[in-house]
Computed example of a mutant assay.
Amino acid sequence: MPAISEKGRSMPQSPIRKLVPFAEQAKKNGAKVIHLNIGQPDIKTPQIALDAVKNNSIEVLEYSRTEGSEIYREKIAKYYAKNDIHITAGDIIVTTGGSEALSFAMGSIADNGDEIIIPEPFYANYNGFATALGVNVVPVVSHIDTNFALPPIEDFEKLITPRTKAILICNPGNPTGYLYSREEIQKLAAIVKKHDLFLVADEVYREFTYDGREHYSILQESGLEEHALIVDSVSKRYSMCGARIGYLVSKNTEIIKTALKFAQARLSPPTYAQMAGEAALETPQSYFDSVKEEYVARRDILIEALEKIEGVKIGRPQGAFYCIAELPISDADDFAQWLLEDFRVNNETVMVAPAAGFYATPGLGKNQIRIAYVLDKESLKRAVNILKEALKSYIG
């Protein structure tokens, strides 16, 4: 039998999706599974986006421009201007989801064996894209005891080598919900300028910030024009994950020219999805205000309930819609599988994402889970109650 590639063997499994077979079996056995494992919002997609696709008059579904339609990119630039990020349509490449934007970014700035420093825990697919592109992830640890704040800059400097090409952050963070402050962004700006590195920011949760805090983009920081790359997406902003539309944004013209070559190899982003994305830009602010209000209520219910469980430690989210919970167990992977296979409360169980897959350092996160609070409040209450009873039974 021909051999599978070493790169293929090295590709990590998704900690979010690898337990799906157990969840599906639980459902076949008649149990209801409450999904806390994946960031698929239950918020309705703006009707204006759905209607744009439904009511179109296209007769030939042609290729679009490789970088996305010019009209759409001009409208995206206006969206950024409203967020105090001043760019042009030429600074934007429309991609097939934020995932492709991240892949283009890594491919444009790093060669095989080069290194990208990422605060961990981080979005698990960063590992996957890095592996696929032959890039080495170098983790710098953030801690639940400091709510996953930016690690000391000295910790970054210790890790910089001649192969280091960039620092990558997610702001607000998946899986932690941490929101980097202006001061923290400025510290990162100083270090990438000092060492002539790129700073890549995954800003797909920009709209979701809580407790009066505001998002500060790396492209709001002056002097980063040649260093900064933004990865963005419509998926969570407009609750349209299935559209698969994202953006790569940079004022560095060489980055855009290089990324465009990667984009040309896949021809073009999807036409219908661009139509939906363009229409979604007309979504009124009231939509985001009500969505934020709902997520804050969900967060508060979740955190308050989790804090009442003996032995559980929580990172308090300041943005996005995730949190990391540290449990009084030794192996969250085993616990998560056991929940699906063996534990029920009123014939319900929960599916969580073991957090070890969000770390690159072996052994870290083994007793942690990521929870996505994208469900209605009653479901969250039931889910936490199931977790509480499950921990009693599992530990016992």
Rank of each mutant, 00 (worst) to 15 (best):
A279G: 12
S379C: 01
Q285N: 13
K366M: 12
I34A: 11
R299P: 01
Y272P: 01
Y359Q: 10
P162C: 09
L380F: 11
H86P: 05
V53F: 13
Q337S: 08
A23G: 15
R65S: 12
P121F: 14
A383V: 06
A279T: 06
R298A: 07
E282Q: 15
Y63S: 10
G319K: 07
D334P: 00
H215A: 06
K32P: 00
I85L: 08
Y80G: 00
A81L: 12
M275V: 03
D333G: 02
L391D: 13
V374D: 07
I43D: 15
P15C: 11
G396Q: 04
I386E: 15
A243H: 03
A110K: 00
L199V: 02
L61E: 03
N136V: 10
W338K: 11
A305Q: 06
L248C: 01
I218A: 06
V352A: 06
K158Y: 09
A276K: 01
L50D: 04
V352Y: 15
E183T: 09
A356P: 06
D111C: 11
R65K: 10
S64V: 04
L327M: 15
G363C: 14
R298Y: 12
I185Y: 02
K44V: 06
G128P: 00
D333R: 08
Q47V: 04
N252C: 14
E304T: 07
V384I: 14
A279E: 03
A3Q: 09
Q47L: 12
E183L: 07
P21I: 05
L327C: 13
E225H: 13
D289N: 10
I71E: 06
N127D: 10
Y394V: 05
N136Q: 14
R73W: 01
L133Q: 12
A101N: 02
I109R: 05
D155Q: 09
N147M: 11
N171C: 04
V234G: 00
A166W: 02
W338C: 13
K381G: 05
V53H: 04
Q13N: 14
R163W: 11
K28N: 00
K82E: 13
L260W: 01
S250L: 04
Q186I: 13
P317H: 02
N125T: 11
C170G: 10
N125P: 01
Y205T: 12
I76C: 05
N347P: 03
Q13V: 07
D91R: 08
V249E: 04
P46N: 09
R266P: 00
T271H: 13
V312G: 03
F122I: 14
D84K: 15
Q220N: 11
G68A: 07
G365V: 15
D196F: 08
T349A: 11
A26M: 12
E6Q: 06
